[in-house]
Computed example of a mutant assay.
Amino acid sequence: MKHERFRFDSGFRVAFDVRDVQAAEMVVRPGDSEGGPDNYHQGADQWLYVVSGTGLAIVDGVHQRLGAGSLLVIERGERHEIRNTGRTPLKTLNFYAPPAYDEGGEPLPAGRKRG
């Protein structure tokens, strides 16, 4: 068993991974964004759940509004950006299958597990 209490303080933080799934938290400040037109995951699908705040996801050019309770799946290879369009932090819980980042938040090569 693994357990984590998410803080949603700031930025991006990998919590842990088990077998082929990784959990992470991401906080985007008002007016900021994460990702961009050249951002994609080579070998992982990303499931993004909005805990609080409002935002906009741009996935392969398609715009999707986000709010508390939204669940978005970004499939491997889809270029994406997450923008905070609100006045409060956009807090998201993310799952990557398979894991996409090392413990420091750096991208892993496609198909690699962190060690």
Rank of each mutant, 00 (worst) to 15 (best):
Y96G: 05
R5A: 15
P109V: 01
N84C: 07
D60L: 06
H80S: 01
G53Y: 02
V14P: 07
H80V: 03
I58R: 01
I58L: 14
A68M: 08
V73W: 06
Q64E: 10
S70P: 04
G111V: 04
P89S: 06
N84S: 01
G55Y: 04
T92F: 02
G111I: 00
L71P: 03
D9F: 11
F8M: 01
H41M: 15
R13C: 13
N94D: 13
L71D: 09
D17T: 00
A24L: 04
D38T: 02
V51D: 06
L90Y: 06
A24T: 09
L66E: 13
G55H: 02
R19H: 10
D17N: 02
G53F: 07
A15C: 13
Y96S: 01
V59Y: 02
E78F: 11
D60S: 12
S52M: 08
R13Y: 12
G104M: 05
E75P: 04
E4K: 00
N39C: 13
A44T: 06
V28K: 11
K113W: 12
R76I: 02
P109Y: 03
R76Q: 01
D102V: 11
Q42W: 12
H41V: 12
G31D: 04
E106P: 03
R13P: 12
H3W: 08
Q22N: 09
G69H: 00
D9L: 10
Q22R: 04
Q42K: 14
D38N: 08
R5N: 13
P107D: 11
F95M: 03
A100V: 15
G77T: 05
